[in-house]
Structure formats: structure tokens, C-alpha cells
Nucleic acid binder design. Structure first.
Lengths: 156, 156
DNA sequence: TATAGAATTGACGTAAACGTAAAAGGTGCG
DNA sequence: CGCACCTTTTACGTTTACGTCAATTCTATA
């Protein structure tokens, strides 16, 4: 008794021969993954973590543009260094019927903290770069000393 | 028949009442940890990974200045972002009887790669900072719009 | 001797974000 | 009909550098 929710044209998508119909309602996991440069595993993982909620045709996941919007947000969050937990917290507060003030405030709050973290990280990296550069100079110097023939010693 | 290798003066070290005798041959793990700001677990972990090799008095670890030198190197390596594996590879090549040319070359090689990684990381972080800042501006703007009363609409 | 403090080994836990089988079901095409 | 693909769920594995008990032992001191 499983209903066939597959719209006409879906069948073709199976072999990835997707016509350029821009109005695709649903895409399946493979196309979704290709479109956003993630793996199937990633999409399932995000779903498991409650970050995505694709529809189902039987057991097959069907992603809408709503899911695409969410995925974009996830990827942006990931890029700026948020954990998936953070991203979820922020997205969970989204309410299409309200002003989302709370969501925006939380997002801003988390963003400020994340910005501070990023700046601290940059400082640490700069430190590391300096230390490493210094050390490299020393190592090069040691190599030169060990490579150069003795200058004016008895071994000449 | 376990031999007592404890030198006179060691006993006092137990309660951390170490006199200011600068010429301490051995220190135990607690003092070592305190001296370098690491935990006991860390020192044992480093030993387990072959990075340290303290002497033993029975089962008690005794660290010499050689171990201290090695630990300093480990901490420096860690600071500049090397993995413990890398640090070990470099330290394993140390030969007190030779010129250590191979060791120095390997170190330099790894350092160059690490430097490149650090610079790439810094670029990524800068990107993230920019994206995040931009996003924060947008969020602030949305908050303002939702907070401010309607300007000149029918809802006035 | 009782107690407190230091030390030991062993071993499971943690964090993040997936990777990687494994075993199986569905589907269109030739 | 059978192959080639796509998809599913389940679940353990990976990486790094330790954290956190747990059970035990050793030692010195009051």
C-alpha cells in the first residue's frame, strides 16, 4: 500500500539524466549531494542529528528547497567554524510565524563568541608562524655549519 | 631484592619540600609536571608514545635534564602545530655522535610543510572572520527592522 | 599504626564529523 | 531476466591528545 509520491520526471532522475526542468519539486539524496558538494553520508548524518528533515517516498529521501536552504545555512555555519550543535540550536529557534527575535539574538550572541574564538585562533597561528620561522632559521644555520668545511683549523 | 636507587635528599622531595639544591639529578613525575605545566597523564602518555624515556627507581619514574630537554622540544613542536608523531620522527633521528644532518633536513622539511599549513589556516580563518562579520551585520540589520516600529505603513 | 599524599598500571571515555563496509531492497533498460 | 545503479539501515572505525576513574601500592609523617 505504499503510495507513489514520485512526480513524473522523477524516474529519469534515477540515472542522473535530469532534464533542465528548473521547477523540480524534490531531489533525491544523490542529486542533493552532488549539488552541494557533500557526501550521501553527510546528508544522512545531518538528518540523524536533526539538522535536516527531508520528506519520504516510502524510504527514499526527498529534499525540497526548504532543505536546500537549511543545508546552505549548515554549510555556512560550518565554514565560519560553528559546531553542528550550534547550528542546530540556532536553526531550531526558527519560527516562520514570528519575528524570530530570539533566534536572531542567539545567532548574534553565538557569532560574537565565535568571532572572538577565531581572532584568538588567528593570534595563536601568528605566534606559531613566528616561532616556527625562527626555529627554521636556526636549523638552517646549523645545517650550514655542519655542511661547510672547517674554516681554518688543523683539519684543513 | 629491589635496589634502592634513591639518592639522599630524594626522600624530602616526596612531600614537595624540595630544598633549593639546584643540582637535582632526578625529579619525579609530579614535580616534572608542575615545572612544565602539563599533567601526569600527559607525561605518561608521551612516554607511552615513545617520546620520553625516564629512568626508573623500581616503578617510579625519574626524569633527568635530558628528559627535560626532550619535553621542551615536544612542547615547542606542539605549539607550532606538529603532531606528536612528527615530533617523534624528528627526535628519533637524533644521534649524539653524528652531525645530525638527516635530522636537521627532516626537521626543515617538515617545518616548511607545517609553515605552509599554518599560512593556509590563517587564510581560512581570515575568510571565516570576513564571512562571519558580514553575516553579523545582516543579522543586526534584521534585528533593527524587527524592533523598529513600522515606518509609514497602514499599521501605523 | 592510621592517614594522607604520591605514584603505578589498566582501560574505557571524549570530542567532531563523518568514512566505510555489509546486507539488502527497489528500478529502469536491453 | 539480469545487470548496473541508486537507495536504505545498522553499526563499527577513524583521528588526536589526552581526561577520568579504579584498584592498588609505596612512603613518610604524626
Amino acid at each position: 500500500m505504499t503510495m507513489k509520491l514520485v512526480s513524473p520526471g522523477e524516474a529519469a532522475a534515477n540515472t542522473n539524466d535530469i532534464p533542465a526542468e528548473a521547477g523540480e519539486e524534490f531531489v533525491r539524496i544523490g542529486e542533493m549531494a552532488k549539488k552541494y558538494g557533500v557526501t550521501l553520508r553527510t546528508l544522512r548524518f545531518y538528518e540523524d542529528k536533526g539538522l535536516l528533515n527531508p520528506h519520504r517516498d516510502g524510504s527514499t529521501r526527498l529534499y525540497t528547497r526548504r532543505d536546500k536552504a537549511r543545508l546552505k545555512l549548515i554549510l555556512l555555519g560550518r565554514k565560519v567554524g560553528f559546531s553542528l550543535r550550534d547550528v542546530k540550536q540556532m536553526m531550531d529557534l526558527y519560527d516562520p510565524t514570528g519575528t524570530n527575535t530570539k533566534q536572531l539574538r542567539l545567532t548574534l550572541d553565538k557569532s560574537e563568541k565565535q568571532l572572538a574564538r577565531l581572532q584568538k585562533q588567528r593570534a595563536l597561528i601568528d605566534d606559531a608562524i613566528n616561532e616556527l620561522s625562527t626555529s627554521m632559521t636556526a636549523v638552517r644555520q646549523m645545517l650550514v655549519e655542519r655542511t661547510a668545511p672547517p674554516q681554518a683549523s688543523a683539519a684543513g
